[in-house]
Design a protein around this nucleic acid. Structure first.
Lengths: 190, 190
DNA sequence: GCCTACCATTGATCTACAGCAAGCGTTTCA
DNA sequence: TGAAACGCTTGCTGTAGATCAATGGTAGGC
């Protein structure tokens, strides 16, 4: 059940079988149906989620009721409202399933315990966060520098599979543009 | 010389005097005059820099020659082209000094050595990156959701001192707007 | 297998912000 | 100490992308 997760971890650090066993006790499995929530704005985010199968999105909703997607994650991605998870504040993000999804969940309590009992996980998360920062830095630059068309092109360069899997209105929201604009861009690119 | 750095580290993890001594051997001091470069686009970023005194900015330059600031850092901030530093790719960022600045530099080699010889630093950087991710997540949401005025308000809420220290055109660039727009927003807010 | 809900497209209009240019106070440095 | 460079403001105009609205296609639930 946790194969993908352990594989993902062992790409970054090496663990003994005993450590793997210990790790296994920290996680629980959760199934989400398409459109089902993992987290709703205002609640405290109690779980860090690793996607074993399926796809999820995290997003805010503004005053006008518009969704702004901050992350789309599928197999091998971690997702949460990080600030809420770490500091116990009410979440500003919603997280729900784009497809039927299987998640591995890690509670805050187990997160902290894990670092004490399996110190090698400090390295795993240090490297995971390090890579994640690299990605977010580029995304932030892209968001402030590029036109809508350039952003879309950069996205299909980075994630070519995404257009076949994720509805275009979600991609538009992730890029910070409207579905109409994305539609017009696609037309222009053909 | 490294007092602020060690203090910063010991807020997150506790280190023995021996570990502090070892750490001290990894860092070198660098002085930058105002407008002097630490890193130029195209070079490989060899150093992770911690600001001991002064202020620096990292930015890209687009086809039209416009600066887009990705980070402004002062005392207690880390700065680099992270992707370049980690993966050895040519940097897309420029980094230079906004004021006369003193930096503590950590080479990639010492960065890796540090994690082997002072494993507690895994935790320090895990927590540092964790916090940094929280900040960048919010900034990304802000960038895609808010109007220019809302972004500016959010910035002075988060960093009230910034308007007294950093020229407004740099703040505008950091927010992804033009200096003219920022000027008009300020007028509107009075 | 039909009905409804969802999704992409396209056209017409609107708006926040960019771009350009000119003017003015203030720092900088020969 | 005076010229030059710099930073901020303000007015005018341009434009990328948002918004609103209508249409057609496709997929999932009963």
């Amino acid at each position: 059940m946790f194969d993908l997760l352990f594989q993902h971890i062992q790409e970054k650090v090496s663990l003994s079988p005993a450590e793997i066993d210990t790790l296994g006790t920290y996680f629980t499995i959760k199934q989400l149906k398409k459109r089902q929530y993992l987290l709703q704005e205002g609640d405290v985010c109690k779980q860090l989620a690793f996607v074993i199968h399926g796809a999820v999105k995290s997003y805010t909703i503004d005053d006008k009721g518009h969704e702004h997607i901050s992350l789309i994650g599928w197999e091998g991605w971690w997702i949460s409202d990080f600030r809420s998870y770490i500091y116990g504040e009410p979440a500003i993000l919603n997280i729900d399933a784009i497809e039927d999804t299987t998640l591995a969940l890690l509670s805050k309590q187990n997160y902290e315990k894990m670092f004490v009992e399996v110190p090698m996980m400090e390295k795993y998360f240090r490297v995971l966060y390090q890579n994640s920062l690299v990605t977010k830095d580029r995304r932030l630059i892209s968001s402030n520098t590029y036109t809508a068309e350039e952003k879309f092109k950069a996205m299909i360069d980075t994630y070519p599979q995404i257009v076949h899997r994720i509805p275009q209105q979600l991609i538009a929201s992730y890029l910070g543009i409207t579905p109409e604009t994305l539609s017009r861009i696609k037309k222009r690119l053909i």
